[in-house]
């Protein structure tokens, strides 16, 4: 009988107590997250911990490495903060590492920040004291910002004064802006420029009407006619040169495609050399034609600028 009764009782006790222990264990784990990992201790002294409490996080370069284990008042100006830090990061905490009190976000709770020191200083020892630096506080930032605002207010005030003076015509800049004499002078200069332009206009008018040498050069139709004639001649000459090249082309084509004796001649090396030299000579001939044409152009330009006796030279 008792066997039947005690089985649920035992099971119930086992499970209830187990569940209770689990719940408690997890809560304990939550508050002291370093329960199962080995830790070492460092302390630091602050003037003001700004609301830091036991259980707050300790961060090293932004990584959560431990918790604050105690906050004690040592004297009226010193508060000792003891931190439990994960064994794994021991080697990175140096003797000259600095400790600061910061905030998780703008509204979050406080935490301790450990700034990495220099490797030369060596690794910190257990229970060693680290130097603290004064934390940046939101309150202080606001104070500073207020100073900046005051400064800028002063600046804008003096700027205002300056512009007022300018308006009133005080000083050189003021005069420049405010006095009328300068503009009058500028007006006169403009008038003079206008007269100058008028003269220039007259000159170009004369040229248009063919008055004077320059005018004739520009306006005389006879000169234009002669120039056209010369150009025609030049055109004919280039046409001639063109036909020569054409014939050469036909000739070489026949050489390539023709049959019989001529064809054999082409594929004969000596013959080819002959043809080569011929072509070179032809090239020279073309060059000469080009040079001649060049001379003609030069002489024509000369004629153009010398003005008279153009009829004697144009026959070239």
């Amino acid at each position: 009988m008792s066997k039947f009764k005690s089985r649920p009782l035992k099971l119930g006790m086992l499970v209830s107590v187990g569940l209770l222990l689990f719940v408690m264990a997890v809560y304990y784990l939550g508050s002291k997250q370093n329960l199962f990992s080995s830790t070492f201790t460092v302390t630091s002294h602050f003037y003001d911990v700004k609301g830091l409490v036991e259980g707050n996080k300790v961060r090293y370069s932004g990584i959560s490495v431990g918790t604050v284990s105690s906050v004690d008042i040592i004297s009226d100006s010193t508060i000792s903060v003891e931190m439990l830090i994960n064994q794994k990061v021991w080697e990175f905490v140096r003797k000259d590492s600095k400790v600061e009190i910061g905030r998780e976000g703008l509204m979050g709770s406080k935490m301790v920040i450990i700034h990495p020191g220099t490797p030369e200083a060596g690794t910190v020892e257990d229970n060693e004291m680290l130097e603290s630096i004064k934390a940046i506080d939101v309150q202080e930032i606001i104070q500073e910002a207020r100073g900046i605002i005051d400064d800028s207010r002063m600046l804008s005030k003096s700027l205002l004064e300056m512009s007022e003076k300018i308006n009133n015509g005080d000083g050189d800049l003021g005069r420049l802006i405010n006095e009328n004499t300068i503009t009058t002078k500028l007006g006169q200069a403009g008038d003079e420029l206008l007269a100058f332009a008028k003269n220039a206009n007259e000159i170009s008018g004369k040229v248009n009407r063919g008055e004077g040498d320059l005018g004739r050069l520009v306006n005389d139709s006879a000169i234009t006619y002669e120039l056209t004639f010369t150009l025609n001649h030049l055109k004919q000459m280039t046409a001639h040169a063109d036909s020569v090249t054409m014939e050469m082309l036909l000739f070489s084509k026949e050489l390539n495609e023709g049959e019989g004796l001529l064809n054999r001649l082409v594929y004969d090396r000596e013959m080819a050399q002959h043809v080569d030299t011929t072509i070179v000579k032809v090239g020279q001939g073309v060059d000469e034609v080009v040079q001649t044409a060049g001379k003609i152009r030069e002489s024509w330009i000369l004629n153009l600028f010398s003005g008279r006796d153009k009829k004697d030279k144009q026959a070239d």
């Binding site: 089985r7 649920p8 009782l9 099971l11 119930g12």
Partner: peptide, 13 residues
């Protein structure tokens, strides 16, 4: 307490 644990155990069974 006994009743409570017995109840828990019975529910589990």
């Amino acid at each position: 307490l006994e009743r409570f644990f017995t109840e828990v155990g019975s529910i589990l069974l």
